[in-house]
Computed example of a mutant assay.
Amino acid sequence: MLSIKDFSEMTHLSAQTLRYYHAEGLLVPARVDEQTGYRSYTFDQVEQVMLITVLRQAGLSVQQVRRAVAEPDVAPALLREHTAQVQRQRREQDEAIRTARDLLETQPEPSVRHVPAMTVVSRTAPVTPLGHDRQEWDAAEEILTAATADLIKVVESCGATPTGTPWRTLAPGAALAEEAPSWLVHVAIVGEATTPAALPTDVEVQEYSGGDELSITMPGRTSIAKYCTAISRLFTYPIGDAFPDVGRLRHLVREDGVEFSAPIRRVDQ
């Protein structure tokens, strides 16, 4: 039998950690003296500690490790699930690092640009406004991305050619909506305009008149914080006797970030 001191030195686990593992039912001593409470271990338990230590170093929680040790058959599946989660977190961290670098180096600022007239195909997407938290926002983004891809397929199937970057806008009155679809996805097309008869009934073809817009590009994936920051910077950017019509704000999702672009309206218009 090994004392907790000897076992600690052999396994490189502190006595405090061994007591914690005992309390959590992860590593139960071979013997506990009823009078003194002293814990004793066996050499056979060193192998168990090796597995526990490796799994803990891999990032599994005590609860996950306890189950892996108690149920060896499910251990590989637990490790695969944990691996997928870690890889997802790493991708998110890498993206966050790139976004942070871009924000610190570029300091996004609004700029005025001219948008030409174009023919636009639009469709509603079944998403309610914005999302109340990160999970809802991400879920809405997935739906909008899928809706945009579907709209592009519709356009191409009708013989039209998509051009430029697709975008989305909040539907009129969307800020007050709770359950009704509140986003519109848009795709500009070139060539002959698609005939309404060839389109599904929920798709519209409109002419976008074009004009000057005030836009700002926020690096990385979209979020409610970036959305609010963009609106704030658009509102405070000096453009004389004019203002950005954020009620018609366009969200153009690009590979390197999201461009928020609002038509410029003159005060007398």
Rank of each mutant, 00 (worst) to 15 (best):
A125P: 01
Q107K: 11
Q135T: 11
A77D: 02
E141I: 15
T99R: 05
A68G: 01
V69M: 02
R66Y: 06
R123K: 14
H114V: 03
A68P: 00
P108C: 10
A75E: 03
H114Q: 11
H114P: 01
E136L: 07
I143H: 01
R101L: 02
E92R: 08
R66E: 04
T145P: 11
D94T: 14
L104I: 15
D138K: 06
Q89R: 11
I143L: 02
P129Q: 05
R66W: 03
E141C: 15
H82V: 00
L130Y: 04
A84H: 12
Q93T: 13
E136C: 11
Q64R: 04
V74Y: 04
D138F: 02
D73F: 09
E109A: 03
E81P: 13
D102V: 13
V127N: 10
R101N: 06
Q87G: 09
H132K: 13
P126G: 01
T145L: 14
A75W: 03
R134E: 01
V74E: 04
D102C: 12
P110F: 05
E142R: 08
L79R: 03
A117C: 11
A84M: 15
P129D: 07
A100M: 10
S122W: 03
P116E: 13
A125Q: 01
A125T: 00
V127M: 10
V127H: 03
E142Y: 06
A117F: 06
L130F: 09
P72Y: 05
Q135S: 13
L78W: 01
P76R: 12
R113H: 14
L130P: 09
P126E: 04
Q64I: 00
A70R: 04
V69F: 01
L79A: 14
R101S: 07
R91W: 10
L103Y: 03
D94A: 11
E81S: 08
P72E: 08
L78K: 05
T119E: 03
E141K: 14
Q85S: 08
V86D: 10
T124D: 02
Q85F: 06
L130W: 06
Q85M: 12
Q93L: 15
P108D: 12
H82S: 04
I143T: 06
R67E: 08
A75P: 00
R98S: 05
E109P: 02
Q135R: 15
V112D: 15
E92K: 03
P108A: 09
A140H: 01
Q64W: 00
Q93M: 13
E92G: 05
R134Q: 08
A117I: 09
R67Y: 05
T128P: 04
T106R: 04
P129S: 05
V115I: 08
M118T: 15
H114W: 11
T99H: 07
R66V: 01
I97V: 05
Q64P: 00
V112H: 15
A77R: 03
V127G: 03
T106D: 07
G131T: 05
